[in-house]
Amino acid sequence: MAEKIDITDEMRAVIGVESAPWIYEVTTTSVRAFARGVGYTDPVYFDVEAAQAAGYRSLPCPPTYLGTAVFIPGKSSDTFSGPLGSGPSLKMDLPNLLDGGTETEYFEDICAGDTLTVTSKTADLTVREGRSTGQMLIVTSEMTCTNQDGKVVAKQRAQALFY
């Protein structure tokens, strides 16, 4: 547990720096795996015919699912599956991580067959006193998802708490 967390100039320097783009795939199998993991029973997330009858091109992404990052050993996080060097990578020597909050803004439907190009950046760094954790470093990150037609389809802001 950290006594006192200092946000150094070096840490601050990453704020606003956009990551290299990474591909996230949306496939019928990946949509089903996510929908199954959440516990959906709605056939629209499992059966392509049901999805098309409901007005979608193919299986739509369930809310909060923004595709599956292409996994490449050595380039991807073994733990979180996203590309290394994006997301909450400002770990310093704080061993513990909790999720603080998530906000997703949607601009277009995202369906199986879409390929998303995703960039992310650290939007903000703050320090807060946790109830039982001591000081926590709060990393706010923002990811932008652009589809194969060049349209920004979603933006997601997330807060990670390190302590």
């Binding site: 996510f34 993991g37 959440v38 516990g39 959906y40 709605d42 629209v44 409901a54 007005g55 979608y56 369930p62 809310p63 909060t64 699912y65 906000e103 997703t104 803004e105 949607y106 439907d109």
Partner: peptide, 20 residues
């Protein structure tokens, strides 16, 4: 995601989520 499922079940594809 479960809060998303709650909203999705309610909408039953009659509307879209803009922000969650």
């Amino acid at each position: 995601a479960s809060l998303g499922e709650l909203v999705s079940n309610w909408l039953d594809h009659g509307g879209r989520i803009r922000l969650l």
